[in-house]
Amino acid sequence: MTKGIAPARVVAILLAAGSARRFGGDKLVTMLAGQPLVHHAAATIAAIAFARRIAIVRDACGWEPEAFGFERVATTGEAPQSASLKAGLRAAADAEAVLVALGDMPLVTVAHLRALMAAYDGRTVASACGGKAMVPAVLGSGAMARAAAIEGDRGARDFLLDGVTVAASPDMLADADTPSDVARLETIFAQRGRRHGSKRAALRLG
C-alpha cells in the first residue's frame, strides 16, 4: 500500500463527551488562552479538509461543534470513553480511515495531524511520547472493527501498539484532567505567545 492518506479520505472524530469527574465541572468549556478549552482542538481539526468531522459530545454540552464544521453526535449519562469511541465509529462506519483526537488536548498541531496521515500505510498510526502510544491516532478499517468491540473506559489505547508511531513532545500531548493541568497549559500558551512575539519583533527590526 502506498504510504500516506489524504485528509479527504479520512473522517476526523473528536471525543468530547467525558464527565470530567476529576476536574469538578465541564472542563471543555473552561477558559484557556482566551477561549473554551475544547475550541483549540476543534479549530485544529477544522483547519484540515477532512472528508467529515464528527464531534462526540454529551447531550448538554456547552459549546457548538457545528461552528467548527462538525457533525454532532450526542451521548447520554455517564458513558465510558469506549462508548464515545464506538459512537464515533458508528457514525463513520463507511470511512476508509478515521483520525481520533481528544477535546482536552489543546496543544496538538495541524502539522502533527498531517504527519500522522502521511505515515499511514494501512496500519494504525499513533502519537508517541515517552515510549507510550496514544491519541491522536489514525485507525484503518481493521483497527476500527476491533475498536468497535471494546468495553469499559479503555478508549483506543489497546489498538495503538499494532502499527507505527509519530513522535510528539510531552507538551503537545498534554491533556487537561484537573484545574492544575489547565494552569500548566495556560503557562505553555503564554510562553509560546512570548516566543512568537519576539520572532515578529526581530523580523520587523530586520
Results as ranks from 00 to 15, higher is better:
G4I: 05
V11W: 03
L15M: 12
A16W: 06
S19L: 10
R22F: 08
F23D: 06
G24E: 00
G25R: 13
D26V: 00
K27W: 00
P36T: 00
P36S: 04
V38H: 06
V38M: 07
H39D: 13
A41L: 02
A42D: 07
A43S: 13
A43D: 13
I45G: 10
A47H: 03
A49W: 01
I54E: 09
V57L: 04
R58V: 04
A60N: 14
G62D: 13
W63T: 03
G69W: 01
A74L: 02
G77R: 04
A79C: 10
K86M: 14
K86G: 01
K86H: 11
A87S: 14
R90P: 00
R90H: 13
A91G: 11
D94R: 04
D94N: 05
L99H: 10
L99Q: 09
L99P: 11
A101M: 02
L102P: 01
G103N: 04
D104F: 04
D104N: 14
R114N: 11
A115R: 14
M117P: 03
Y120G: 03
T124L: 00
C129P: 00
G131E: 02
A133D: 11
A133S: 13
A133G: 09
V135D: 15
V135A: 15
V135M: 15
P136K: 05
V138Q: 14
L139K: 00
G140S: 04
S141Q: 14
S141N: 14
A143W: 01
M144T: 08
A147Q: 07
A149Y: 01
I150N: 06
F159Y: 11
F159D: 15
G163L: 06
T165K: 12
S169F: 05
L173E: 12
D175S: 15
D177Y: 15
T178V: 08
T178G: 10
T178Y: 13
P179N: 04
A183F: 10
A183K: 12
R184M: 07
R184I: 02
Q191I: 01
R192G: 15
R194S: 05
G197E: 11
K199F: 14
A202Y: 05
L205H: 06
G206W: 09
